[in-house]
């Protein structure tokens, strides 16, 4: 176990020992170790890399450190910047997990139920990846879809997120009132400067899904120069549009099984509610 103090040192440590695994909060990694599913030959602890534990501003964007914990992201000052990410962080589990688990960890674990992922997809966030060859940029969706992978000794250093100065909503459906894994989640962000609505649906597929047509359609209905309100029927139609795009009817006569039909109804209700709250 090595404990580098800078991102550069961390990359060097990983280069020196290619079998080592970086660990931040360890909420996923150490659980796998304890279960005996993973036996890393070495660990590179990221807890002392201070440059990735906060955030900074860069021409209309926020550069979020990959080591930001969910607890930190849930606080009001962060919520004023990126409300949907703060909401996802607050919903991400019990306090013990939120205190340890990090933004970068949520991305590299890439669990379908990762709560931050649909928000990052809706924000069209970019990852700043540090590696032996220097820094490179990877859209978060490319990493989640497997179009680009992290190379040897590469680490997510920062996540670049646009500051949109407009309402954002993250909603998730779970099986219980207490913290639990999402059965479906929806992030809706408004981008008034580009007159856009962006929406991503999490937990129902291996990666967040973007209903692009539904986004364009609903953005065209919104009067961006006035109060941005929509009729309830339009909200309902948006929800159903999103749900049908993410969970399409199977080809042929075969109807969807009841559990999938319920999931589709859940997505529709979440999308409708999320947009309604964003526009209210």
């Amino acid at each position: 176990m090595t404990l580098p103090a800078t991102l550069g040192e961390a990359v060097a440590a990983l280069s020196a020992m290619p079998a080592a695994v970086p660990v931040a909060g360890g909420t996923d990694l150490m659980a796998a170790v304890n279960k005996g599913q993973l036996r890393p030959a070495g660990l590179v602890g990221l807890g002392r890399v201070n440059e990735i534990r906060g955030w900074q501003y860069q021409d209309g964007h926020a550069l979020l450190g990959a080591g930001l914990t969910h607890a930190r992201m849930g606080r009001p000052d962060f919520a004023a910047l990126i409300p949907a990410l703060a909401a996802a962080a607050r919903a991400a589990g019990p306090p013990q997990i939120r205190n340890a688990g990090t933004l970068g960890g949520n991305i590299v674990t890439a669990a379908p139920t990762g709560d931050a992922l649909p928000v990052l997809a809706a924000l069209e966030a970019d990852l700043l990846v540090a590696g032996p060859g220097g820094m490179r940029e990877v859209p978060v969706t490319h990493l989640l879809a497997g179009r680009e992978l992290l190379g040897p000794a590469e680490l997510i250093g920062h996540v670049r997120v646009p500051l949109l100065h407009a309402p954002q909503v993250f909603l998730k459906a779970t099986g219980r009132t207490g913290p639990g894994r999402a059965t479906a989640s929806v992030a809706v962000v408004l981008d008034p400067a580009r007159r856009g609505v962006r929406c991503a649906v999490g937990a129902i597929a291996p990666m967040p899904l973007r209903p692009l047509e539904a986004e364009r359609w609903i953005a065209s209905l919104i009067d961006w120069d006035a109060d941005r309100g929509l009729a309830p029927e339009a909200l309902t139609a948006f929800g159903e549009y999103v749900a049908a795009a993410c969970i399409p009817d199977p080809p042929g006569e075969e109807p969807l099984p009841p559990a999938v039909l319920h999931l589709r109804r859940t997505v529709a209700a979440l999308a409708r509610r999320a947009l309604g709250r964003a526009l209210s």
Partner: peptide, 9 residues
């Protein structure tokens, strides 16, 4: 406290 929890859906 609504079904779905605090700050839930």
């Amino acid at each position: 406290l609504l079904p779905g929890g605090p700050e839930g859906a």
